[in-house]
Design a protein around this nucleic acid. Sequence first.
DNA 1: AAGCTAATCAACCGCGCACTT
DNA 2: GAAGTGCGCGGTTGATTAGCT
Length: 241
Amino acid sequence: MVRTVYCDKSGLKKGTWTPEEDRKLMDYVTRYGCWNWRQLPRFAGLARCGKSCRLRWMNYLRPNLKRGNFTPQEEETIIKLHAKLGNRWSAIAAELPGRTDNEIKNHWHTNLKKRIDQQHSATLEKTEVFKSKDHSQVESRQERSDSVSETNSTKSHGRASTSQPSESEFSGLTAETTASSNQNLVLEHDDFANFLDANIWTEPYMDEFSFDPIEIFTPTVAEPEFTYSAYDAELWSENHF
DNA sequence: AAGCTAATCAACCGCGCACTT
DNA sequence: GAAGTGCGCGGTTGATTAGCT
């Protein structure tokens, strides 16, 4: 899962990082901090571009990074935040200590997105089933109504057989139907509402692009600037090398 | 065992923003 | 105000692994 090492035109190394490079970067950042990513590789003795160093540090070498599988709680948080914030991975990562934006982004694209899509299509399917079921009831109701009023009017024919029942058709139906005859329909409405409630991700997901980022994005308390002692570095190195 | 496909994830690339000169 | 520089972010790529036929 790593890119082969190669050098670009300017002689800068690209591709996977070697343990030696990691150690150099770790040592340097631990000792001097990341005062200038562009200059850093030169001083750290690395034939890498600053961007690459920054990325490696942020996504892999930075201490307090969690490795391994995402917990269900973390996944839940990601889904919620994604519904709220969209693809603002860094903002999402800020809410998940120890996780990087890259890691979250990868996890989203490889796992969570599919899951959400499945839920989304299941919701649509159920909605369609509900609509067609409801529609057929409207139609049968309309037919009965039509048959009654057939002698009085012939102009209303055909309307009920057109695609979707309108809102007025629904409200008319509620007003017209007796308690006993519409009981099933009411229950189904409730079931549908319950289904939507139970399917807690549906709404925010579908509403993803209609949020007001300024209104809903509540900045969290910034984490204190990372301070890293030589002892920590040693301890970390022991565990990782 | 071999070949193929899908999944995973580290790393690269390009763009935009903020800051400095 | 324009140009230059650095950084951060999000999208994309591609090598490797896992799973299936």
